[in-house]
């Protein structure tokens, strides 16, 4: 089978290319450009002044603190789940795969809602936790839990197909050569999936830092305390403080662009070491 080689467009083809470019320009490029234009509408000084605001700095700090815990936890989970699913045969594997994918089909708002149902003031464990003096909803912990749920499948989804394709041959060979568990994981398995892990962590991190709906439900919107960057964008926007809103938004957009650039680079450079077709 021969795959398609792109040809130089002519005639009708330009119509197709033009339609695609116009569409992408309208739906993707224009909103992206407008973020930066709006952010600099009153000049660079006003733009940078937006980050002097202690609330903005607190939001940036909180976002980093959440991602710093949520991403490694989900990466650890992704590794354990992928090791389990790709290297062993056991009953219930299909069900496990379905459950791992489940958070992808949840509305972000539902991913926040469920935590309120469990830990909120009227939640299952709310009253009990209240007596113990522990608060989860409207605190860092709640934001963390919502973020973890939303970004739950990212690393696992990246690793599972790759490790399944790689099979167990190399690990089995390592066993016959006398390697123990630690040597197998560190010397054989991890180097084989390193780039896919980076890729998954990258996407997981982008989503963790940019999550809005789920976090919005559990945050309580206390400025300087429980507002993450996306929530701070909303608060500023609702205050008609557009320059500051777009300034913070431009940081998030920049993060997205850097993520995409690195992702594209990884896809070019290491396409054979990433799970093929599992782009998301």
């Amino acid at each position: 089978m021969r795959t398609m080689v792109p040809e130089k467009p002519k005639g009708f083809a330009w119509l197709v290319v033009g339609a695609a470019a116009l569409w992408m320009g309208l739906a993707i490029l224009l909103p992206l450009v407008s973020v930066f234009v709006e952010a600099f509408r009153q000049g660079a000084a006003a733009y940078f002044a937006s980050f002097q605001d202690p609330d903005a700095q607190a939001a940036i700090k909180l976002t980093l603190q959440v991602a710093l815990v949520a991403v490694p936890l989900n990466a650890l989970f992704g590794l354990a789940a992928a090791w389990l699913i790709a290297k062993f045969e056991f009953a219930g594997k299909g069900l496990l795969l379905t459950l791992i994918d489940l958070p992808f089909s949840l509305s972000p708002v539902i991913s926040g809602l469920v935590w309120v149902l469990v830990f909120g003031a009227n939640g299952w464990f709310g009253p009990l936790l209240d007596q113990l003096g522990v608060r989860i909803i409207f605190t860092y912990t709640g934001i963390l839990l919502a973020t973890i749920l939303v970004t739950f499948p990212f690393v696992a989804r990246e690793l599972i197909p790759l490790m399944q394709a790689q099979g167990t041959d190399e690990e089995t060979a390592a066993v016959t050569l006398g390697a123990g568990g630690r040597d197998i994981v560190w010397r054989v398995t991890l180097p084989n999936i390193a780039w896919a892990l980076v890729y998954g962590v990258l996407l997981c991190n982008a989503r963790a830092m940019g999550e809005f709906g789920a976090v919005s439900v559990v945050s309580g919107h206390i400025r300087g305390l429980t507002d993450t960057m996306p929530l701070h964008v909303e608060a500023l926007y609702n205050d008609y403080n557009f320059v500051a809103a777009f300034a913070v938004a431009s940081l998030l957009a920049g993060l997205a662009l850097v993520t995409l650039a690195v992702k594209t680079l990884l896809e070019w450079r290491f396409s054979s070491e990433l799970a093929s077709g599992a782009r998301r």
């Binding site: 992408m24 739906a27 993707i28 490029l29 224009l30 909103p31 992206l32 407008s34 973020v35 709006e38 972000p108 996407l203 982008a206 830092m209 940019g210 999550e211 809005f212 709906g213 960057m229 996306p230 929530l231 964008v233 909303e234 926007y237 557009f242 809103a245 777009f246 938004a249 998030l252 957009a253 997205a256 662009l257 993520t259 995409l260 650039a261 992702k263 594209t264 782009r279 998301r280």
Partner: peptide, 21 residues
């Protein structure tokens, strides 16, 4: 490469940009 932007762009950012446009 641009096709993936909506995957990576935080929804709140897309939201205020579209509302303004």
């Amino acid at each position: 490469a641009m096709v993936d932007v909506p995957f990576a762009l935080p929804t709140a950012v897309a939201g205020i940009a579209l509302a303004t446009l």
